[in-house]
Nucleic acid binder design. Sequence first.
DNA 1: CAGATTTTTGACCAGTTGGAAAAAGGTTAG
DNA 2: CTAACCTTTTTCCAACTGGTCAAAAATCTG
Lengths: 239, 239
Amino acid sequence: MPPTKVKNAGTAITTPAPAPAGPTGQPRTAGKPRPLTRIQREKHDIILQAALEVFSLHGFRGATIDQIAEVAGMSKPNLLYYFPRKEEIHRRLITRLLATWLAPLQEMDAAGDPFPEIRSYIRRKLEMARDFPRESRLFANEMLQGAPRIIEMIEVDLKNLVDEKAAVLLAWMEQGKIARTDPYHLIFSIWATTQHYADFDVQVRAVLGPGRGGEGRFEDAARYLEQLFLFGLTPRPRP
Amino acid sequence: MPPTKVKNAGTAITTPAPAPAGPTGQPRTAGKPRPLTRIQREKHDIILQAALEVFSLHGFRGATIDQIAEVAGMSKPNLLYYFPRKEEIHRRLITRLLATWLAPLQEMDAAGDPFPEIRSYIRRKLEMARDFPRESRLFANEMLQGAPRIIEMIEVDLKNLVDEKAAVLLAWMEQGKIARTDPYHLIFSIWATTQHYADFDVQVRAVLGPGRGGEGRFEDAARYLEQLFLFGLTPRPRP
DNA sequence: CAGATTTTTGACCAGTTGGAAAAAGGTTAG
DNA sequence: CTAACCTTTTTCCAACTGGTCAAAAATCTG
């Protein structure tokens, strides 16, 4: 009978109450998780959004709790009430992200037609780069640092998924439906070309200039990538 | 008449000597730069190497002078004797890097044959990813943060170079020598696919596994990319 | 070698950082 | 309404941060 949360346990009323513990710590005998309150859910969301903003820009080390708290519109101790450690915020963000990130590849269907499948995989990844650039940058930041906090997820979950889809691609190659090439590097090249538009967005916009760097750039990219992956650069006779 | 470095100006010999200033500061009336000593050149190099290591891993904000000093094998004050500010080290690194980074594209020759030119551009970029991964990551880190310290170099030097080479590519397209497509996004895709092997190295190695993630991965990548950019994924009859 | 210069060191500082503690202020179920 | 809980604020701290400074040590130069 561990004396966690002993309100008035026999002894004196002056029992110092050992563990106040915020909502995420939950060391209340670790038995009843006790459902999150409305405020808790709201604040958790706000904090994670703010943290995404800051972490994706400065990386884990470069981001400060103060910054996150400011973006979240609350005081540092208040933020720490919801997430007792900086690492915890980051871990949650990264874990959630990874699931989102893998989804498009998971959808690539062995039973479908190769080209439409690959084509829509590229489209989906490009849409993610457009709609979730901060997530992409958070991921990139983590990779640049050697993925210290998610390496085993990469080595297990991601690797398994890629192995599976590489087998699918390989089967398509065997059937002569797509060109025979390295399925792993094929997947890498799809990742690289699509995420580039989120991670190197500044560069893309600067190089395209004010004229072509506007919203249309994602449509242009989609068109270009489609052609690249379909035919490469070999000139074809006009249809 | 600002009193910078008044050697013995009339007053007493006990003049407090206003600016000792390290070798890089050079406020000795800013007149004679005085050539760097052997030790200065050596230490500058050592520090820049160490800083590259640390900055490329943690970004500007996440890196500390202490870390850099430790990697460089010297004390923090000693390091600060050579580079009086953290920003200065980073600036030097980034400036030097940008020149190296642009070189391969500069070499792409309008007078050459399109496919060999593009092919060897890809090869060179891939070699850089292999041989200078830290430089690549430093660059990526800067981009992720919105390139605050090099935005105008990107907007001017890089943009001009890309504009020039895009024109070359466009000319090749007009002549029917390569497929008609977007030259800017073509260049982006070459950058993305090659730098991926430096910036996302952990992921690449983890996914390829111990078997194929060894040194051979760059050769495999080169072969794959060559095919991608030449023919895409459309199956071709066996030669 | 001596004197001038350059390099290195150790002590120090003000501001920032992640985080702890406790008390004050709000909510809400009974 | 009120007791129990949840949330927020205030105050504080030790470690770390970028950077200074004077003195000591090493090096170079004539």
